[in-house]
Amino acid sequence: MSDITIFHNPRCGTSRTVLEMIRASGAEPNIVEYLKTPPSPGELQALAQATGEPLRALLRTKQPEYLEQGLDDPSLTDAQLAAAMVATPVLINRPIVITPRGVRLCRPAELVEALLPGAAA
C-alpha cells in the first residue's frame, strides 16, 4: 500500500497533473475520487488542520453552490462548512495530497514537489 494519498477529480486538469507528478516520482498513490467517496466532516477538518490552513482554504468559492448555499457567511462554523462540503463534494478544493512529508492542497500543481520522495527537505 502506498504512503501517498491524493483526493482526486479525474476531470480536473490540476488534479491530473499532480497525479502524473506523483507517478513520475516513482510512487503509486492511493486515489480517493472524492466526488464518489467524499471524506467525512471530521476527516475534512483534520485535513485542513494538517495543512495548517483554515477549513475555508479547502472550499471552492467559485462553484455556484458556494453562494447558493450561503457558504460565504463568515459566521458559519467549521462543522457547518464541513457538512456542506460532504453533502456537495464539488465544493471540496483539489487536489489534496497526503504524504509522510505533510498534507497540502496542491494548487498550483508544483506545490506537490516538496511532498514527493526525494524532494529536498
Rank of each mutant, 00 (worst) to 15 (best):
L91F: 06
T99Q: 10
E65V: 09
A120G: 13
A109N: 04
A48C: 06
M1T: 13
P41N: 04
I4T: 15
V112N: 07
H8Q: 03
I98C: 11
L58Y: 01
P100L: 08
A83L: 00
D73G: 06
P41G: 02
I92Y: 09
L76K: 13
A27V: 14
N93R: 13
L76M: 08
I22M: 12
S15T: 04
R104G: 00
S40T: 15
L67F: 06
R60N: 05
A87C: 00
S15D: 12
A79W: 02
D78H: 05
V32K: 01
P64V: 01
G26F: 07
G102C: 07
D3I: 02
R107G: 00
N9Y: 09
S2H: 03
L44V: 06
P29K: 01
L55T: 05
G118W: 11
E110T: 08
A84G: 02
T17W: 04
D78Y: 01
D3H: 14
A48Q: 09
S25R: 11
S25G: 07
T61M: 13
I22S: 11
E65M: 00
S40Y: 05
A57V: 04
E110D: 14
P74I: 00
C12G: 00
A24F: 09
P89Y: 11
V32Y: 02
A87R: 12
P100G: 05
Q63C: 02
V103L: 11
L76T: 02
A48T: 05
E113T: 14
A57T: 12
L55M: 09
C106M: 06
T61F: 04
A48K: 03
P89G: 08
R94E: 06
G42Q: 12
P38V: 01
V103P: 12
I31A: 10
I98Y: 06
V112W: 10
M85K: 07
P29G: 01
T5L: 12
E53M: 15
G102A: 03
P95T: 07
V103S: 12
T51C: 08
V103F: 08
R16M: 05
A57N: 13
S15C: 09
M85E: 12
P74Q: 04
R60L: 02
Q69C: 03
A114W: 00
I4D: 10
A83T: 09
N9F: 07
R94V: 03
N9W: 10
C12D: 14
T17Q: 12
P54T: 05
G52F: 07
M85R: 06
M1P: 14
T61G: 08
E68I: 03
S2K: 03
V90S: 15
M21D: 13
T88H: 15
A114I: 05
Q63G: 03
L76Q: 09
I4V: 15
V90T: 15
D78G: 01
A114Q: 13
A119L: 03
D72K: 01
R104A: 15
I22W: 10
V97M: 11
E43R: 12
E53N: 14
P117S: 06
